[in-house]
Amino acid sequence: MKYSWQSEQTEQKKCDRVLILVLAIIIVTGLVILYSTSAYNGEIKFQDTFYYLKKQVFATLLGIMGMWCIANIDYHIWKKWAVPGYLLSILLGVLVMLFGEEYNGSKRWLSFGPFSFQPSEFAKVAVILFLTYIILRNAEKMWKFSTVCKIVISVLPIVGLVGASNLSTAVIILGIAVILVFVASPKYGQFAWMVCLGCAFMGIFLAMESYRLERLQIWQHPEKYEKGYQTLQGLYAIGSGGLFGRGLGSSIQKLGFVPEAQNDMIFSIICEEMGLIGAVFVMLLFFILIWRFFIIASHAPDLEGALIASGAMAHMMIQVILNIAVVTNTIPNTGITLPFISYGGTSVMFLLFEMGLVLNVSCLVK
């Protein structure tokens, strides 16, 4: 993909209809799957089978309203807010470390009265806009390895803050940075060095905490560890689904066998209830969504639009791959949600805000 470094005259067009249609199907499918998966836990914990669904629908509606507003705002305006937004994400990360609410052994939430907020979800969007701004300022020097390193290093503070309690999100942020730099750089050979540096960084990061190394052992032999219970139950759910599944709402593993099935492990329940056919259908929806991001990035009117769409593509692609890889025990368990399908109000809201940015880019063509 080649882009002019200068913005060109653009004409207003309708937003990408395929993206809107696929996104709508994913949202509706996700809500149906979430209700099927969470009804039992909602009844047991809150005496309300619709407990999780109602909260998710509320967050989704807020997200859709925000997406519509953002889609009608010229994306060039966000350059002014890129640095303040990034600094705010760092501040929120510090507040999580100091005052964060702990859940399942991890500090990831800030609470404001009855509302809770996961700053790491905001950080993903903030990093996309911040990196876009930094790359635009250094567009003529992107061929230098030193420039590439400086840009990646600029996001390490938020990577470190988020990674202290949420390794998977830190990996996503770092992945977004690498992909955006790759898109903007005219020289690709230097990325071999970046991969080596990234592997070294991850090795040091994993060695800093013993529980991270323990996850590697659990991944290799989940049957030998108590903490491998969730992984094993998820694999049982996948295996019992067969080709066509047990039927929507008929999962056995969601009845307390897979802990918090509506969160990170929801893909295993999809496999159990809808079988291989249903799992492939869900993956196909995400594939089409990511493909539309690529098309929008390829036809963006300028580098800024291309980077925003590429950042959203990187975010979606990495998060979907990580979630499915974790559920199938292809990689160690890192606690990552499936976009638009797993339960999480903060996640779905900021994902939809991000979709608003991409839709606005799609409205402007050469």
Rank of each mutant, 00 (worst) to 15 (best):
L174P: 03
F205V: 06
L303K: 05
L156Y: 07
R246L: 15
Y236N: 15
V18W: 13
G335P: 08
G245T: 03
I277G: 08
T147F: 09
L235G: 09
H315I: 13
A297K: 08
V183S: 11
T328H: 05
F122L: 09
V125M: 15
A306I: 06
P157H: 12
E273Q: 09
F257V: 06
F281K: 00
S347Q: 04
Y343K: 03
W109R: 10
P157L: 15
L19R: 02
P186N: 13
G311S: 11
I73S: 08
V361W: 00
S298G: 02
G189V: 11
L62D: 03
I270F: 00
K224F: 02
R292N: 00
N323R: 10
I218P: 15
S347D: 00
F287C: 04
C149H: 11
L338T: 00
L19I: 02
I296R: 03
A325S: 15
I318P: 03
V178I: 14
N323E: 09
I73C: 11
Q262R: 14
L216H: 08
S7N: 15
I341E: 01
T346Y: 00
V83M: 12
S146G: 15
H299L: 11
V94C: 11
R292Y: 04
F46W: 04
A184R: 04
K144Q: 10
L23Y: 05
L285S: 09
M313K: 05
F130E: 05
P259W: 04
L352G: 04
K79I: 04
P301S: 14
S250D: 14
L213N: 01
T330N: 09
V178R: 06
S146P: 13
I26C: 02
W78G: 12
G113K: 04
S146H: 14
P259C: 06
V183C: 09
M265C: 15
W81L: 03
L88D: 03
F201P: 05
I308V: 14
W143M: 11
E354L: 13
K2F: 06
K187H: 09
V83S: 03
V258M: 10
Y3A: 11
G245W: 05
I290G: 04
A325L: 15
V320Y: 05
W5H: 14
C196W: 02
R215W: 02
I77N: 15
N138I: 07
A24N: 01
F58T: 13
L255K: 14
I26Q: 03
A300K: 01
V181G: 08
M97I: 07
C69N: 12
G175E: 02
